[in-house]
């Protein structure tokens, strides 16, 4: 009954994706203006875990460490420079996207290159949408003081949160019963 067990070599594609996780995590660390010990250590552990065990909570730990480090580094009511902020946002999104992908790519799998191409292409709308929001975000202060703009900003944040919450609730309510009847 015993089949011949041979340890397959790690697939290059899967290794490269995990390397991407590591690089994105390191970029997120380097995006910090000051490297405090505790948040940096949390991020580093999270990044290593995310690269080694991408299907687990490594990426979550790294992102939580990033939020902690970023908010504590500048103190209250201090706005960092726009390039550094955009770089940090890009690094964080790259960490999230690559660790999500790496979670589905075992090291011993044969990976079709088309998978990576499709995944990368699907990041484009997100990047474009984020660029628009970031642009608006940096344009808003020019109109600071206008009650209308502040109201629009508040409504915008609430709308985004509302849509995300509604989609989350919808996905949770329709996920299981619908698909268990497939024949």
């Amino acid at each position: 009954m015993t089949a011949r067990i041979t340890a397959p070599r790690p697939a290059l594609t899967a290794v490269l994706v995990r390397l991407g996780v590591l690089l994105a995590g390191l970029a997120a660390i380097l995006a910090q203006p000051q490297l405090h010990t505790v948040p940096t250590a949390v991020m580093l552990i999270g990044v290593v875990l995310a690269a080694a065990f991408p299907a687990r909570i490594g990426a979550t730990v790294a992102i939580a460490g990033f939020v902690l480090a970023w908010t504590t580094a500048y103190g209250w009511h201090v706005t960092p420079s726009a390039p550094r902020t955009v770089f940090a946002a890009a690094a964080l999104y790259a960490l999230h996207a690559t660790s999500s992908l790496a979670g589905f790519l075992p090291l011993d799998a044969r990976v079709d290159v088309g998978v990576l191409r499709r995944y990368a292409l699907r990041c484009v709308p997100v990047v474009i949408g984020a660029a628009v929001i970031i642009g608006v975000n940096y344009a808003i202060p020019r109109f600071a003081g206008s009650a209308l703009v502040e109201l629009a900003g508040l409504v915008g944040v609430l709308a985004v949160l509302g849509i995300a919450s509604w989609l989350l609730l919808r996905s949770r309510s329709t996920s299981e019963p619908e698909n268990r009847t497939n024949r």
Binding site: Y93, G129, A130
Partner: peptide, 13 residues
């Protein structure tokens, strides 16, 4: 908000 933007857009899309 800038840092959250890609994540929020990614979630919505």
């Amino acid at each position: 908000v800038v840092i959250a933007a890609p994540l929020v857009i990614s979630l919505v899309v």
